[in-house]
Design a protein around this nucleic acid. Structure first.
Lengths: 219, 219
DNA sequence: ATTAATTTTTAAGTTAACTTAAAAAGTTTT
DNA sequence: AAAACTTTTTAAGTTAACTTAAAAATTAAT
């Protein structure tokens, strides 16, 4: 399967999981940076390959085969992220970019070797779950977006769900990293701002950040 | 640059260095598994990009720009080989196959990180030299093919210049590995066979092997 | 419930990287 | 130095993955 096909299937899969629910060609096209005409064409083609269900003007839905394929790519992506993160001193954004390329050129064998080396990790450095070789995902994920966190409670950062460079630069600078502890001091509901403290620094985040950062409460 | 272009340039470069000298489209086409018509087309295209000199019916010659590009890819290939060899228990052939894919999706940044991690190695697990980030290759290579080795002398294996699976399987089984010591006991010139001993085993190799295995004399 | 706005699809066209088959040029043999 | 053979090139055509622009359908607004 070509890189174009792999990216298309992956885009639908990712869209279905965390983002909104709109998996029509236009929206997928936007994520991939192609025209929606191209996305419609591709959708039709992938339907003949039994990777997705296509009906005019309807949402695209992956078949079991398509989902399996997407999960396999996501697995490789997240394994590369975890591996590069462990081995090299690189920014999360750079790691993401490299993984985005490497994921398409990685045999199942190599993926398994990487997983083994890392001790079959369940999460990548963004906190996203790593599917196992059978495509099973173990996420008893109870995390909530920071925007829904409660005042005066303490949390651990469990996921950073972005691929924007500035986002990661900001997070890195403010020590907003996977596994780090934070305390929410105030929720400004009207302004959709959240005040919190990280390592004795108090910062104020707006909705653009608090919906992308997921946390788990500490008891 | 596309993967097709990178592989084309690399094929010319590799052909020029160790193999024969025939860098006409037909020969390059054979190595890449494409038709010679396709190779001619590609050659013309790359000439307009100033990657090589093309003249009808003549040998293809890389320009400085083309050579630089080829060396950059070769560098990434060999770094991946060295890295995968160090990290994972995989056959040399599998490692080669993975590197063949990964080389095209590796940023200069990542290549440098890998090189750094390995302590800027000068040779890969086949004994092929790894160009540095500036494209410089330090090979004071005095090695000779096993076919030219002298009787009753002891050598160290310095290069295994193949990409054939069976070749590597055979070499692995016979302990013919980079850095290993061997003693040539007899050269059967007429039959182009070489008798040698490795770790107390005596084996007889024909020309298909002895021209691909390079060695350095021990004094 | 029409009209207006948006989105999806269709249609036609482009580019890269191939293919096969025939023509042209080069190489080898006698 | 022809004739025979081989290789390269040209020509025409294919496929995947796009594009733009217009037509068709859906969705939103008054």
């Amino acid at each position: 399967m070509s890189i174009a096909i792999e990216n298309f299937v992956k885009a639908i899969y990712n869209n279905n999981s965390h983002d909104a629910r709109d998996t029509k060609p236009g929206n997928i096209a936007k994520k991939l940076g192609i025209s929606s005409a191209a996305a419609t064409d591709m959708a039709k083609k992938l339907a003949t390959k039994d990777l997705l269900h296509y009906e005019k003007y309807q949402e695209l839905q992956l078949t079991d085969k398509g989902r399996k394929m997407a999960i396999n790519i996501v697995r490789k992506h997240r394994l590369w992220e975890a591996f590069l993160f462990k081995m090299f001193d690189m920014s999360l954004h750079d790691i993401h970019k490299e993984a985005e390329l490497l994921e398409h050129q990685t045999s199942d064998l190599l993926a398994e070797k990487i997983s083994e080396y890392l001790g079959h990790p369940k999460f990548d450095p963004h906190g996203d779950p790593i599917p196992n070789a059978n495509g099973e995902i173990t996420t008893t994920d109870t995390s909530i977006p920071l925007s829904n966190a409660e005042e005066n409670k303490t949390y651990i950062i469990s996921r950073l769900t972005s691929d924007d460079k500035e986002f990661f630069e900001f997070c890195a600078k403010q020590k907003l990293k996977y596994g780090h502890e934070i305390k929410v001091s105030k929720q400004f509901k009207n302004n959709k701002m959240t005040e919190l403290s990280v390592e004795n620094n108090t910062i104020l985040l707006n909705e653009d950040f608090t919906t992308l950062i997921y946390v788990n409460e500490i008891n």
